[in-house]
Design a protein around this nucleic acid. Sequence first.
DNA 1: GGATAATCGAGACGGTACGTCGAGTCTTTCC
DNA 2: GGAAAGACTCGACGTACCGTCTCGATTATCC
Lengths: 190, 190, 190, 190
Amino acid sequence: MPRPRSEKIRQSVLAAMRRALAAEGYEAVTIEGLAAEAEVSKQTIYRWWPSKAAILGEALLEGALPGAADPVPATADLSADLRAWFTAVSDGLAQPEGLAVARALIAVTTADPALGAALNERFAGPIAAGIVERIDTARAAGDVRADVDATVLAEQFIAVASYEALLGRPLDRDRVEAVVGIVLRGIAAG
Amino acid sequence: MPRPRSEKIRQSVLAAMRRALAAEGYEAVTIEGLAAEAEVSKQTIYRWWPSKAAILGEALLEGALPGAADPVPATADLSADLRAWFTAVSDGLAQPEGLAVARALIAVTTADPALGAALNERFAGPIAAGIVERIDTARAAGDVRADVDATVLAEQFIAVASYEALLGRPLDRDRVEAVVGIVLRGIAAG
Amino acid sequence: MPRPRSEKIRQSVLAAMRRALAAEGYEAVTIEGLAAEAEVSKQTIYRWWPSKAAILGEALLEGALPGAADPVPATADLSADLRAWFTAVSDGLAQPEGLAVARALIAVTTADPALGAALNERFAGPIAAGIVERIDTARAAGDVRADVDATVLAEQFIAVASYEALLGRPLDRDRVEAVVGIVLRGIAAG
Amino acid sequence: MPRPRSEKIRQSVLAAMRRALAAEGYEAVTIEGLAAEAEVSKQTIYRWWPSKAAILGEALLEGALPGAADPVPATADLSADLRAWFTAVSDGLAQPEGLAVARALIAVTTADPALGAALNERFAGPIAAGIVERIDTARAAGDVRADVDATVLAEQFIAVASYEALLGRPLDRDRVEAVVGIVLRGIAAG
DNA sequence: GGATAATCGAGACGGTACGTCGAGTCTTTCC
DNA sequence: GGAAAGACTCGACGTACCGTCTCGATTATCC
């Protein structure tokens, strides 16, 4: 009997969050401002989301996520694949929205580590999984040493990307090359 | 001619910042709370520091900084040296204060990228320099490939440490081992 | 649609103002103190009143006002009537609250002449009107000279009362007698 | 042996007070502003004056005081004399500085009745004395009834002037005429 | 002609209040 | 019952003056 939650409202709040994120940065976003921007009452926001961070999480889940949208290619050439993928990620972080989103994710995590960890799991998890899978394929093909921990490696890429986003200093071609080069040699089969 | 600035007050504010950081996290720190904790008037804080972040910066410059206090050893064994250093850094981030400080640094950077970059330069810079120096020594000794960019490598370590601090998931022995292992093989001479 | 303004809060702020006025005097009244005393948030006060003076004005409009409560009697004896009325006014100013209110009115006026003039119009106006009316009646009865400006006369009484309130030196019987005596003779019909 | 108090400084503070009074009104005057304006240190002000009001008092004692500078004329015509004097007083209150000074006096009194009473005694006293003297002369000449209390009468004039200053509505020719007319008839000998 | 002692400028300092902002919660009315 | 509108409490913001407190640096006097 009760009136169902309005999907339109939900979308307009998430959209407002995405816009605000790019425009002012996560810390500067206020629930009040979001409500005004989305033409929704504060109460409605508080009814459906427990925190600003939760809105961010939902907004990211539904919007384009830099990195998430970049699946690791799987040609026969591991080196070229990683290079291509990492380049795509860097390009994503070079876009204003991509940078804003990544930073927002970092900001949330410093404020609420538990939630941050959950969000991270949600977003970085699949990315890491993609890399691990690609490495495993390469290992099966004999291109990668048997004792390499693919998880550690995936995290290394993610850490570098995250750090560069934090500093707002996206990696250029050369640095991508250098990072991939070092790591690849580190894991290449004897 | 006027009464000189009180060094005692300065120290007590910085100490209050360090205590608050460990106890509540950077975002939860309040100028008002700081003033109360340091038994100093708000006005005095506003007179000498332009922002919460500036206090943090100064507090870090004068207090123990995790990582900064850990110089890279320089024995004949590059592998052992990096392992020892990175272990020390990880241990620093496993301490509550070390973790709090690192997270605070990250939080500041998301809120004010320019200032964050400056602080980062100030703190991460010397650390990176230490690593670069160690690598160069190793290169001179023929242990490292000539074409390796030591700067990229240093940043890789810092990025990993930073990312782990962000997630509050300090590296254990095995992960340190894995990271150093991969990187080392990646740069090892022929 | 929104929740309506709370009348209870409004009353409790006005009451706090009246209490504070009598206890400490207008200048010593603080918005912060008012909020605490009325158990209301500062924000709520700022939402509804633009200034301390505005609260005072409203408080007076609704509370007992010395002088306002004393209508000019209208027996056949003009002299007795004015004497009785002016005695009542003096008695009002001899009460602590009456004195506090009168002084507050004066204090507001020195700080914000425009507002003060408005308040004065609001409070002194009706009083003056009462006197003017009584004089006109007397004039019709042939007790007062035709050329007397009743307005000037009314203001003379009010000015004396105001001045005595300012100095906190309420008029005693004899002075009331003297003032009324002089004025009455001055206006008596030939 | 010690260096004596600087008269120059004293004067410059008093001058600053007079200027500030006319420019912003008594309540808006701050010790800090006074110090800046007079190019004197706060400490020096606090050394020599216990309060803002004390500075005002001293400034008035030495500066031109409206009314104080207007002695009651003493020709043979009491009516003309009072008219002339009260006109002069009204004119003084019509000047910006005169008005500012009178209002400042009133403001001080509402804030600190005791000090206000003292200042009033100091300033209004001589004026009242002048009127009383003139009335007494007139009485001796048989122009004024024997039973008239000259003090009450003097205060009546002062009260009217004060009230008009408070409201910032200086008396014009006609009102001066009306006030003096009523009072004079009220005290005229049989 | 120094020594000396209070004056003075500058401004640091602990307070108190200012007026504003946003976080969350609550209440009313409309749909 | 969902939603808009906005009243309400709370806590922090950054600012302005208050009155007190050091600090040199600067004079007048008096030996």
